[in-house]
């Protein structure tokens, strides 16, 4: 029941995302970011998957950008540099923290898996655990 609800929600999100991405790649991208006004078709195609994924965020950005005066200058990356440097270095120190947390978890997973494999080795056969494909199953008498 829960699984079906999750799957249905994901499917609805994805369908809206795909429709939005087509509109965003065609018109919205240049409204949100003026640098993209003369962008190539290849660029618009590359942006589409991300737009399908992040459509709620981009929908808000598009709406805000459209409401803004046309003469407003867009922020250039250089203006963000001062924020970039401390953020970048802080994230680097958080990466160490992430590995300190992940390292024992990953080690535990591997130990449990290798031990489990050793215990059931006599009964192991290649491709034995996954259900056999329906095509082959239906072909059997």
């Amino acid at each position: 029941m829960l699984t079906e609800f999750i799957v249905e929600t994901v499917m609805i999100y994805a369908v809206i995302g795909v429709l939005f991405a087509a509109a965003f790649a065609w018109r919205g991208v240049a409204v949100v970011d003026p640098v993209a006004r003369h962008a190539t078709r290849g660029f618009r195609l590359l942006v589409a998957p991300g737009a399908a994924l992040l459509w709620p965020l981009l929908m808000v950005r598009w709406w805000r950008a459209a409401a803004r005066d046309a003469g407003d200058a867009a922020e250039v990356p250089g203006d963000r540099t001062e924020r970039w440097q401390p953020a970048s270095e802080r994230l680097r120190s958080r990466a160490l923290l992430a590995w300190i947390v992940l390292a024992p978890l990953v080690a535990l997973v591997l130990l449990v898996a290798i031990r489990s494999r050793a215990e059931r080795l006599p009964e192991t056969r290649d491709a034995g655990r996954l259900p056999e494909p329906a095509v082959e199953r239906s072909a059997r008498p």
Partner: peptide, 13 residues
């Protein structure tokens, strides 16, 4: 790593 460990690793001869 978990996908491989609990997946193909369990069946690999």
């Amino acid at each position: 790593v978990a996908h491989v460990a609990f997946g193909s690793l369990q069946d690999a001869i």
